[in-house]
């Protein structure tokens, strides 16, 4: 397993509760490898451990695409390692390995209508995809974003959502909201059920909690989208990220190297299996 490469935090932004976005730059003068939307890095906080975190686009809403010499990661403090990473300040150092895995099928999106469906923190791995689509919007037929969260203040990237809604259709949904909320209240699948879709010419990309993705898959199938048009990003406990440690095995797949993004047609036999 490779030794991490030394990086420093060049920018930092507090997002929603316990969630931060870090912009990272290597301390050596070597260029960064090409990182594709949907791939992930292993981030190491000194003494606290290493975790897989997806690449998540640019740190400022006004930047159209990620800077080629930085990585940006949005992460939530849920355990010892992510808590240590979330405490990092500008100038602090950390280790990075990656990027790893297969990302979103960017080549196949050209000329298609794209439906982007995110739940909670699942918007983070989709942000670089959205930025790439928006930077070159004439290449894509039509882009819709459906984004759901628990409460309005739990929706990630509020500035970007406003910015994006000027160019693409953005529909938001929350489980609970106060009287000033103007979006949908309920689950994201209700919005999908009533959305206008062109099943023969659409690709859907999905990221969120597994339970949300299960219901989303069923809603899209009801809309008539074939399994080959559905892509989603999976999450498991990855230690090595290169297919050696075995922790992320899922049926016949290693999520670290065969995923984390899968075409649903390839994983349909496994996706609804419990405790796999």
């Amino acid at each position: 397993m490779n030794t991490p490469r030394l990086f420093t935090v060049t920018d930092r932004r507090d997002e929603i509760t316990a969630t931060v976005t870090l912009e990272l730059q290597p301390l050596d003068d070597q260029p960064l490898p090409v990182a594709r939307p949907g791939q992930f890095n292993m981030l190491y906080s000194f003494g606290a451990g290493e975790v897989p975190i997806s690449l998540s686009g640019s740190i400022n809403a006004s930047d159209s695409v990620r800077s080629a010499d930085r990585y940006t990661h949005t992460l939530r403090a849920v355990g010892k390692t992510t808590e240590a990473l979330a405490r990092l300040q500008v100038g602090d150092q950390l280790g990075v390995r990656g990027p790893f895995g297969r990302g979103w099928p960017m080549d196949q999106l050209a000329g298609k209508k794209v439906v982007v469906i995110a739940g909670g923190l699942g918007l983070a791995p989709l942000k670089p995809l959205l930025e790439a689509l928006l930077a070159d919007i004439t290449h894509y037929g039509h882009v819709q974003l459906f984004y759901g969260g628990k409460r309005p203040e739990e929706l990630l990237y509020p500035e970007s959502l406003i910015h994006w809604s000027e160019k693409i259709e953005v529909q938001l949904s929350v489980d609970q909201a106060g009287p000033d909320w103007r979006g949908h209240v309920g689950v994201i699948t209700q919005l999908l059920a009533s959305a206008e879709m062109d099943p023969d010419n659409t690709l859907a990309v999905i990221c969120g909690p597994e339970i949300m993705m299960r219901f989303t898959i069923q809603a899209l199938q009801k809309q008539g989208l074939p399994d080959t048009a559905l892509y989603l990003s999976m999450e498991r406990n990855m230690h090595c990220a290169v297919g050696h440690c075995g922790h992320c095995q899922w049926g016949p797949h290693f999520i670290c190297k065969d995923g984390p993004v899968f075409c649903y047609a390839d994983i349909a036999p496994w996706f609804f299996q419990r405790e796999l």
Binding site: M1, Y44, C240, C245, G246
Partner: peptide
């Protein structure tokens, strides 16, 4: 069987 785990210590 080839699975392994990593442990970070200080």
């Amino acid at each position: 069987c080839f699975c392994s785990a990593v442990e970070d210590t200080t």
